[in-house]
Each structure stands twice: as C-alpha cells, then as structure tokens.
Design a protein around this nucleic acid. Structure first.
Lengths: 178, 178
DNA sequence: GACATACAGAAAATGATTGTTATTTGACAT
DNA sequence: ATGTCAAATAACAATCATTTTCTGTATGTC
C-alpha cells in the first residue's frame, strides 16, 4: 500500500474506549468455562477494571495485596494467563523487560512505548492498510501487523530534554501506567 | 497519513543487501575506538559475517564454540553489546523471548516474525509515512515507528496447517534463521 | 454435602542475562 | 624481544521475571 502523509484513519480520540468486561461478566464467563470463581480471582478482576493501562503481573499483585494481604503472586500470574487464554486480555512483550497485560482486546490498536520509563499507551488508529506484497513475503503468511511507536512520554520528555539518545535505567518493575 | 491499498514503497527485493562490515573492518574499528581485538572477538565477527539472519547470543555462542571450545557466553554477550554500542548491529526485542541481533543497521527496515518458530526476517519497506496526530500523541514525542508483522514462515505454515491459533512451544533458544 | 478445583506457601527450577574476580593478553612503548 | 598496564577473558555466582512442583487446606459448584 501507498502511504501518503495525511492523518492515519484514527478512530476515537477524546472518549475513552470501553476497556474490559466487568467483574460480574468475567465471573459468569469463568463459571461457564468450568472455572471456579474465587475471591482472589474477583479481586484480580477488579484490579483490572478501569485500567486502560498495561499492568504487569507485579503491579496487579501489588494492587490486590493492599486489600488481600495473603494473595500470592503465583495466583496472579495464573489468573492473568487464564484471562489471556479466554481472550479477555492480551499478553504483550513490548521490550520493556516484563510482560504487560492489555485489557483492550476488542478494538485493534497499537502502542506508544516510552523508551525512558517504559510507559505504554494504546493508540487507536487503523493501520490495517499495512501489508506486504507476495514477493516480499516469500512464503511468509502474515497474520497481523503491530506498530510500536517508540519515543518519550510527556513527563519524561520534560525531565530529559538533553541526551535523549542514551538509554536511562530500563524501568522499575512495578510501573504499569497507561 | 492515509494508507491506500497499494504496494508499499518496497525497495530491493531480489538482490541481498550488504549486511555488515567484514571482520577486518570491525577489527580496525575496534582498535580505533581504543578497544582490543582478541581472538574471541574476531571469532564472533566471523560468526556474524554473511548472516543476514537475526542471531541470538546463544546462537553466536554455539557457532563460535565449534572452533573455539573455551569461549564463554559472557564474552559473546559483551561483544555483541559492544557492536551494538558502535552501531554495527542492532539489539532487537521482538517478543521471541531472547534478544536478537540485527546486522542490518544501514537501511531502515521492519520485521516479519514467525509466531511458531521465532524466525525473523527483514522487511525492506518504507513505512516512514506512519505517524500519529498531535491529538492522539497527547504529549508523547514519537521517535520512530517499528512495524512487526506476525505470522507463520513458510516451513511452519506447511507443518501446521491446523489450529494455528494455539501457541506451540515458543522456540528453541538457538534459532536464528533469517 | 461431595468432590474437584483453587488456594497459599515455599522452595526450587527455569532461561536469559549480568555481576564478580582473579587471571590472561593485546597494544604500544621500550 | 620485553615490559607495562588497562582491557578482556573464563568461570562462576547472582539476578530477574516467570513457572513448576509440592502438599495439605479451603472453598466454589452442583
């Protein structure tokens, strides 16, 4: 495809997109799949609610721990993976060192990744036009295209106006911001 | 930008692109930068030669070990990172679980990643038109866009015609193929 | 209430990568 | 050829995120 320098066919900009199923819906879903619904799982469901962010397992664990001191990190990992299996969240490796879980599964989207703090933000833009020719593919069967925009988030950009070329400390392990 | 469904402005298809500096050039470069040139480094330089593939550190280590039994994995990592510092190769995290090193630094390009075997192939196509609007960026300062096409390489596609949805074993740690 | 499943907790394995350290060795001057 | 010295090495321990394996107990679901 040709790309001319206009606006991408971006979708919704101002209004936040619905993020993920409610704890109640997830409860129902788990039951219907023969999985049991436990307090810790519900606590994890709640932790994910309203997060249009991209939490790490560790972050979810920290959040859930505030209420539920005894919850184990292992349970968090397990539940996140189950949610991923059910297609309710998506596990992402964006090169930030830890797996991030993205509650946005419905709407095809891409990501902005801050190369300073590791912050990840969803970008709702339609790059579905991206494709490669058969001659370039050389037998490779393309499923989908992911676009990662790397740069600096607003805060980091203000903090580090100089030497943006060198890599600062990767990022603390609990960051999860949008 | 708008994307119409034409061919991307792909460059060179048939002829392979020059990949990386020769061991001799790299030797000279290392010396000129005040770095020492050791047999193990030269062995690593040679291992990278002709690879238009995306080797992992482990793969380089295996290759180098055939000649030089005593070389350590640590040395391989260190040398690869030095090459990356010097801009001769690029370290990539493409979600395959291991860092891949890309000898193609000159020409801006993107990647095809096989979700079955982890194979990585360069894609020389110009997606430089990809951009986001200021309203979408919301203060995020975009550096560059990376496009990753995920799918199945020819071999894997032939092997796994069914259930391509479920993830097969991630990939052996020594894969490095193009 | 029965029964399978999920739980915590703990330990330990994992795989990729990095840190530590004592020893070796290039590069260059002698 | 030799000496010098910082840099590079091998070997090993350590780290980090994550997974695995127990095991006995607790608790959803029917």
């Amino acid at each position: 495809m040709m790309c001319t320098n206009e606006e991408p066919q971006a979708a919704n900009q101002p209004e936040r997109v619905p993020v993920m199923k409610s704890p109640e819906e997830l409860t129902e879903l788990f039951r219907s799949m023969g999985r049991k619904v436990t307090p810790q799982r519900q606590r994890i469901f709640r932790a994910l609610q309203g997060e249009d962010s991209h939490p790490s397992a560790e972050w979810v664990y920290q959040v859930a721990s505030t209420d539920m001191e005894t919850i184990s990190l292992k349970t968090v990992y397990q539940t996140l993976h189950e949610l991923a299996e059910l297609g309710e969240i998506q596990a992402l490796d964006l090169g930030t060192g830890t797996t991030r879980f993205d509650p946005n599964v419905e709407i095809s989207h891409h990501h902005l990744v801050c190369r300073s703090c590791g912050k990840v933000r969803d970008l709702f833009a339609d790059f579905s036009g991206l494709s490669i020719s058969a001659s370039q593919a050389e037998g490779f069967v393309v499923g989908k295209a992911e676009v990662v925009f790397r740069g600096l988030c607003q805060e980091c950009h203000e903090k580090l106006p100089t030497v943006p070329g060198l890599r600062p400390p990767p990022n603390s392990s609990i960051n999860s911001q949008t």
